[in-house]
Design a binder for these strands. Structure first.
Length: 116
DNA sequence: TCTATGACTCCGG
DNA sequence: CCCGGAGCCATAG
């Protein structure tokens, strides 16, 4: 049935936020965790992503660590699949790190798609 | 029920 | 400025 926020698992909450990430934008685990009200559960966000395999609606490649580093790229099928996906959306990645990360950063709390 | 894990983050030296 | 260690919390076994 339709899952209420209370019945929904922490993972589903994470998915809900990640799905809201606009194309060409990225965010960090901590920002998502904070948006969920669990700023200290950043690691859980990553864990949720690990379980998001198979969910095409969850662009896990748009989620990186606070430094803009593609820490989770190693979990993707291809070695550079995550980087390729980001580059396909117009995001430039160098050395597993997003260029102008703060510019492409998307705050789930603000939920704005405007680019500085 | 308890222990271990981890795609993070923060703080101190 | 760079590096290391501890804290944190939800899920799985």
């Amino acid at each position: 049935m339709k899952s209420s926020p209370e019945t929904a698992s922490f993972f589903e909450r994470v998915y809900a936020v990640v799905r809201q990430i606009p194309e060409g934008r990225v965010t960090s685990y901590g920002a998502i965790a904070k948006a969920l009200g669990a700023a200290r559960s950043a690691r859980m966000v990553g864990w949720a992503m690990n379980a998001s395999h198979g969910l095409d609606d969850v662009p896990a490649h748009r989620v990186v660590n606070r430094s803009g580093l593609l820490t989770g790229k190693h979990h993707f099928a291809g070695r550079h699949l995550m980087q390729q996906l980001l580059e396909q959306e117009g995001i430039r990645v160098e050395n597993d790190q997003i260029v102008d990360f703060k510019v492409h950063f998307w705050n789930p709390e603000i939920n704005s798609e405007s680019i500085p």
